[in-house]
Write a protein that binds this DNA or RNA. Structure first.
Lengths: 275, 275
DNA sequence: GGCAGCGATACCCGGCCGGTATCGATACGG
DNA sequence: CCGTATCGATACCGGCCGGGTATCGCTGCC
């Protein structure tokens, strides 16, 4: 299996449409059809079921899609790491708006290290682990249990409890403390995007980032349960009420398991040092 | 980067010789030279330094070699998992001669599970984690701290202390208990192969598997420190003496982080259930 | 039943992959 | 010090494969 075939397959599996997939790949549709057919032939398994109106994934196709994404991510990561080995630098992914203070402390402490290299920040709206898997980043600050840490090495840094963020005018804003049951079935709960950027069907507003979320909450259109770190970022018109039985959130530093980078090891050591 | 290029590069990086690498790949030397040169050109980095007498890896080349091995392993794994999704089966890697009883218990308990699939055993001489990384196995029984568990999800099953295995006629055979210092610099210690099958230079006999090792020990040519599990497999002429300060050995069950297989989850649950 | 959308098929072209022949450099032996 | 063997690079050629256009066949829909 060549990465070209995997790229082609991922495009078709994601679009579920040969024409659009070919378009996205910048090639014509017939060679794409042919390549997928060859791939299926060599594997001896059907990856897609096609009628002339609809394309869908088989079980084998679903497996290969997941595997292919991981592989293509690893290839991109390998490429970047190979390219940048001579001019060392470090890309740190973090959630925009989250863990501001921790991040500042970490960057300062690391910069004071002997042999520290330049650190580039990659601020994500959501799915902070994604850049780690596709090679855009070397290290990430993640929040368990929200972010997936599958396939990554992690060290916990900090654990904190969660708060309900509501509009000041919301009936719950005056409460001393809340329980999950108090917020679990409010109609104003929101939906975050899936890793591929799509949204599962269901009730609640589709939300892209924290700023947008806070605006919605201030307007009384949404309610969210979030860790303590976001509190300093709350503006006017928002209130944070402790949710005593919400799961604790752990901030972890994560990196790819095979990382041999001196810089990553230093940063992790510094981070765990003052946790 | 195509997997073809990575396969070619790995061959050259491992052989450090274009001719032999081309031979191993079943192609002629000139296209191999050309492909590597193209790869370097596209990456904008030198991967190898060549004189007409010697080829060696650059820092970038060392990085790409490690990454490439992981990628090629992931590709092979993806292929096998995609192929076998419709006729589910499970390949379990374990060290030949190690953990025999635990293995039998595990297989029996899993077979009794509803929805259990066929389990194929892959018995390894050493480096049991390798088949997991290159896709030949779905689950493995590993022994920390001997086996590398980098990049794998693990659950500990069992911890045990270590014994020195010596010939009955050996001066140490009569001891009640030993310390690491007693065996650390015996001339009869052995060398195990590296993951690539080669042996680091140094003193001691090169050893391939347990049977061979036991034979060497019985002949008084070797001494080894090993976990308790091997005891039942010891034959005549061998003695096991506790080494009180040797690191504890933990048997773990390990699987690739992105595994979505129902069968793997079941097996892990069964294994951790009776640990 | 005509039509539009979509994947498959047929066929052609150009580039790339792999082959052979050879060169240039280097270590080594006489 | 020079001949020689070894090894990677270069030059050049042929065939295959990846990508293009044109078209077919099927299917759901007005």
């Amino acid at each position: 299996m060549e990465t070209r075939e995997l790229r082609y397959f991922v495009a078709v599996a994601e679009e579920l449409h040969f024409g659009r997939a070919a378009d996205r790949l910048g090639i014509a549709q017939p060679p794409l059809s042919r390549t997928i057919a060859q791939l299926e032939h060599r594997l001896g398994v059907a990856l897609l079921t096609r009628t002339s109106r609809k394309v869908s994934l088989t079980a084998a196709g679903a497996v290969l899609l997941a595997e292919s994404r991981a592989i293509l991510g690893a290839v991109a990561a390998a490429e970047r790491r190979t390219r940048t080995v001579d001019r060392p630098s470090l890309v740190l992914a973090a959630k925009a708006g989250g863990s501001g203070e921790l991040l500042a402390k970490l960057l300062d402490a690391y910069a004071a290290e002997p042999g520290a290299v330049e650190v580039d920040l990659l601020l994500c709206e959501a799915h902070t682990s994604q850049p780690l898997l596709d090679g855009r980043a070397d290290v990430a600050l993640l929040h368990e249990p929200f972010d997936s840490t599958a396939g990554l090495d992690v060290e916990p840094l900090h654990t904190e409890s969660q708060f309900a963020i509501v509009a000041s005018s919301h009936p719950l804003a005056g409460a001393e403390r809340l329980r999950m049951a108090d917020v679990a079935d409010l109609p104003e709960l929101v939906r975050w995007p899936e890793p591929d950027g799509s949204y599962l069907p269901g009730p609640g507003v589709e939300v892209h980032n924290l700023t947008q979320l806070f605006q919605l909450i201030a307007l009384g259109r949404a309610v969210a349960v979030m860790p303590e770190v976001v509190r300093p970022g709350l503006g006017e018109g928002l209130a944070a009420v402790p949710v005593v039985d919400a799961p604790k959130v752990t901030t972890v530093i994560a990196w790819p398991p095979h990382s041999r980078s001196r810089a990553v090891a230093d940063l992790v050591r510094v981070a765990t040092g003052f946790s």
